[in-house]
Computed example of a mutant assay.
Amino acid sequence: MNATIIALLGYIAWTLLLLVALAIYRTGLVMKQKKAANGFKADGSDSPPLGQRITRAQANCVESFAFIGGLLLLALATDSAAITNGLAYSLLIARLGQSISHLISTSVLAVQVRFAFFLVQVAICIYWIVMLALKFVG
Rank of each mutant, 00 (worst) to 15 (best):
L132E: 11
R114G: 04
E63D: 09
A75S: 09
L22A: 03
I68N: 02
A66K: 05
A66H: 03
V111A: 14
A75W: 02
A66W: 09
R26N: 05
R95A: 01
R26G: 06
L16I: 14
A82Q: 11
V120S: 03
G69Y: 11
K32G: 01
L73P: 12
T27P: 00
F118T: 05
L119V: 05
V113P: 03
A23P: 01
A110D: 06
T15R: 03
V120N: 07
G44K: 03
S107F: 00
N2G: 15
L8K: 15
L91G: 15
A59F: 11
H102C: 02
G69S: 10
G70C: 12
L9W: 10
L87S: 13
A57I: 04
I24W: 03
R95C: 04
F117P: 10
A59I: 03
A7Y: 07
A13I: 14
C125I: 10
L19T: 06
F67L: 15
V108S: 11
N2W: 10
C125M: 12
S90Q: 07
A88H: 08
A88K: 01
L17G: 09
M31L: 15
N2I: 10
D79K: 15
I124A: 06
K34S: 10
G86A: 11
L103H: 14
E63G: 00
T4V: 04
L16F: 10
A110V: 08
S107D: 05
I83P: 03
K41A: 10
S47V: 07
W128P: 03
L132I: 15
L18E: 12
A81T: 10
L9P: 04
T4K: 05
V62D: 07
E63A: 00
S107E: 04
I100K: 13
A23K: 08
I54K: 04
A66R: 01
L74I: 15
S99Y: 03
A42S: 11
G70R: 11
K32D: 06
L109Q: 13
F117K: 12
L74H: 10
L29N: 11
A116M: 13
I126L: 14
V130A: 12
I100V: 14
A75L: 00
V20N: 11
Q98E: 14
T15Y: 07
F67E: 04
S90P: 02
T84D: 09
C125Q: 14
Y11L: 14
M1V: 15
G44D: 05
K135R: 15
V111L: 12
R26T: 06
V113K: 07
M1R: 13
A94S: 11
D43E: 08
T55N: 04
G138C: 07
A88T: 05
I5K: 01
A7L: 08
Q58F: 01
A82H: 09
L71V: 06
T78Q: 12
A66D: 01
F115A: 15
H102D: 05
Y11N: 06
F67I: 07
Q112E: 04
